[in-house]
Design a binder for these strands. Structure first.
Lengths: 147, 147
DNA sequence: CTAGGTGCAAAAGGTTTGCGGTTAA
DNA sequence: TTAACCGCAAACCTTTTGCACCTAG
């Protein structure tokens, strides 16, 4: 196999972008790859630093632009916490976020039933396009998990 | 009865502040009163404009300081949505927020069972101090409700 | 060719902070 | 008296934007 195969297959990215009539540029690809291979919900700044290892000339503004594009295409999720820098994740499955006091952010998977339950909490007449659920608290003792 | 009675009784505010060893100044009182009598989740700027009707000399920075103080004391909740200006509410009962596309924010009450259910979604080992749930979507046709 | 993208630098905009002066216990 | 608090203005910091150049279809 080619080394290039280490990057995302590109199909998911290319297809997602194409759906909006956008091109999979090397910058978008680099940004997406960083997120797809990260489990720590990096900030734009952090994505910038990591993507620069691959694309040495990419600028922070371009990273912001790419992130916005990817979010708009539904390929990436923006994770907000108070006024702290926005963080990003490429986990597109339904999930909530647990914000530990340390700043660490962990995905909390949501079952289809949970999603249904939460959506059903809305009063008559309200129709949710989406919801965001985030917890704040103490994370369990650090596991020896990867990344 | 004195006209002053129109302001919040002050007891809730004074007690909440006292718990943190803080004084119920006229500025904090004005800010709190604005929120306690608003159901539309005003931004700091908006709180500033409204509180200035009562305290003509209050400054925006002081409003920000007061809001932060009140949030820290648990008397007021900060409501975030993406990177838009933070909004505030004095509704201390357990509730979620519905963000309509219009920018309108509506409280969504949460029953004790709902709170329990949502808290129970966390994986083993995680302990949540609190959670925040927000919906995005279309609000029902405007009711003739009061502010 | 030419519409869409990138990179840079500068602007924007909400929020915070430093500081001198004021106020309440 | 004195520690807490306010108002002002300037600083901060993340994010956005304008613009000239570049590049893929």
């Amino acid at each position: 196999m080619m080394k290039a195969a280490m990057e995302s297959t590109g199909s998911e990215l290319a297809e997602g972008l194409a759906r909006s009539g956008l091109r999979p540029t090397s910058q978008r690809s680099a940004v997406y790859d960083v997120l797809a291979s990260s489990h720590d919900h990096p900030s734009a700044e952090e994505v910038f630093l990591r993507s620069r290892k691959v694309l040495r000339t990419i600028s922070l503004a371009t990273v912001y632009n790419c992130l916005e594009t990817l979010v708009d295409c539904g390929l990436v999720r923006a994770v907000h916490r108070d006024r702290l820098p926005t963080r990003y994740c490429a986990n597109r499955s339904e999930h909530a976020h647990f914000h530990a006091e340390s700043g660490e952010v962990t995905d909390v998977p949501l079952s289809p039933e949970a999603v249904k339950y939460i959506t059903a909490l809305l009063p008559e007449g309200f129709a949710a396009d989406s919801f965001e659920l985030s917890y704040r608290g103490h994370a369990p003792r650090k596991t020896g998990s990867n990344i």
